[in-house]
């Protein structure tokens, strides 16, 4: 019971952070697989089943732009921040820093 509650809370905590991390990583254009690797290398593990639907959702919200291009003889979908996404990322980063500073004090 306790571990289930912990797992749910952990997922909830990670959800918002992941969005911020994905937006920040996409200041540079990447396709899904390299984005996942970049996140993983910085300690932000994310599985395909979470990442790809998230990218789709962020794109439908106008925060990302994507296009299909061929690379290494394979078609890949490249994502990057849209102008609106850049503004949102800036605001979310400020929000994150504020929360982080508050939590540091609280914890």
């Amino acid at each position: 019971m306790n571990s289930e509650v912990l797992e749910n809370l952990r997922l909830e905590l990670r959800r918002g952070c992941l969005i911020l991390a994905v937006l920040a990583e996409l200041r540079t254009e990447r396709y899904g697989y390299t984005l996942r690797k970049a996140l993983s290398e910085q300690g932000m593990e994310i599985d395909e089943g979470t990442l790809y639907p998230l990218l789709r959702r962020l794109e439908s919200q106008g925060l990302l732009i994507s296009e299909w291009r061929e690379e290494d003889k394979r078609n890949k979908r490249f994502y990057r921040l849209s102008p609106e996404g850049k503004v949102i990322l800036k605001q979310l980063s400020a929000e994150w820093k504020g929360i982080n500073a508050s939590l540091d004090g609280i914890l």
Binding site: G32, R36, R56
Partner: peptide, 17 residues
């Protein structure tokens, strides 16, 4: 409406791995 687009992307992800 999303079948082809999503599976194309997943195929690339699997093949890259």
């Amino acid at each position: 409406s999303q079948q082809d687009d999503i599976t194309r992307e997943l195929r690339d992800s699997i093949l890259s791995q």
